[in-house]
């Protein structure tokens, strides 16, 4: 790979919430790459993202993100500087409800705004202009002065995207950004996300295979805490996905009663689709 690496994982071991461990022998993602991570529930996708955002630390191995080693805890100052460069967008990344849309977007520039302006929400005019431009590019300019609790789910996600534009991060981590949206809104949010990540590295976790070509040119499949495949988007086909989501590989819990079995089946179904 000719591009410099934005992310480098070497022999990383990290406990997940469940019984498994995330084990990554080697993973390198270059600057400006667009990568999608797929896999069944509990495969370690979210843990991988949390590793990359510095939320958890590996118990073993090398982890370098944007030239910063995250093996040791960063100082508060370094952590804030690191967070400025990493933009996150999630299914449950809520805006602050009582603030207006514009104020929520301006939160994106808090990382580089110091002093009283960041505390009193009196941002410098240049940042306000930038925020308005960001809102215009996601098509929410009309609602700039509305309070965010009056917005729909898709609009809220667009506010989060505008905030991301405002933040200008070098690495964007998107954890199921479209999970709560209808197909049309999901598609729109994905397109905006790709536009927003121009020049930055975009790593997204998605469940819907239809969105893969929109979001990524490289797909990493995860299974049981390990990387099952790492292919360019053109090489990913139905058989790959079938192998990844194979039904009998899903860890089964012995049903306790009829009811729990029913929910277990539903769960399996939702994993498959």
């Amino acid at each position: 790979m000719t591009r410099p690496a934005a992310i480098l994982l070497d022999a990383v071991l990290c406990p997940t919430g469940g019984p498994m461990c995330l084990r990554v022998k080697h993973l390198e993602i270059g600057l400006g790459e667009r990568v999608a991570v797929i896999g069944h529930n509990g495969a370690g996708k979210s843990t991988l993202l949390r590793l990359l955002s510095g939320f958890v630390r590996p118990v073993a191995g090398q982890l370098v993100v944007l030239n910063r080693s995250l093996n040791k805890p960063l100082s508060a100052h370094d952590m804030r500087a690191f967070r400025c460069e990493v933009g996150q967008i999630m299914q449950n990344l809520h805006p602050v409800e009582r603030l207006t849309v514009l104020e929520n977007v301006l939160i994106g520039c808090l990382g580089r705004t110091r002093g009283w302006r960041g505390l009193t929400r009196c941002y410098p005019p240049i940042e306000v202009k930038a925020a308005e431009a960001a809102l215009a590019s996601v098509g929410l300019m009309k609602q700039a002065e509305t309070r965010t609790d009056a917005l729909s789910g898709g609009e809220r996600q667009k506010v989060a995207l505008a905030r991301l534009l405002m933040q200008r991060p070098r690495l964007i981590l998107a954890d199921e950004p479209t999970a709560a949206l209808d197909p049309v809104a999901a598609r729109e949010v994905c397109q905006l996300l790709v536009q927003a990540s121009a020049g930055a590295t975009l790593i997204s976790v998605v469940h819907n295979p239809e969105l893969l070509p929109l979001l990524a040119d490289r797909v990493i499949g995860m299974k049981q805490g390990c990387i099952a495949f790492d292919l360019p988007i053109a090489a990913v086909d139905e058989s790959c996905l079938d192998a990844l989501y194979k039904r009998n590989e899903v860890p089964r819990i012995k049903p306790v009663s009829r009811q729990s079995q029913a929910t277990d089946n539903n769960h399996t179904q939702s994993c498959l689709t």
Partner: peptide
Amino acid sequence: AVRSVGAS
């Protein structure tokens, strides 16, 4: 979310 943009 506000913390994640690097706010103090």
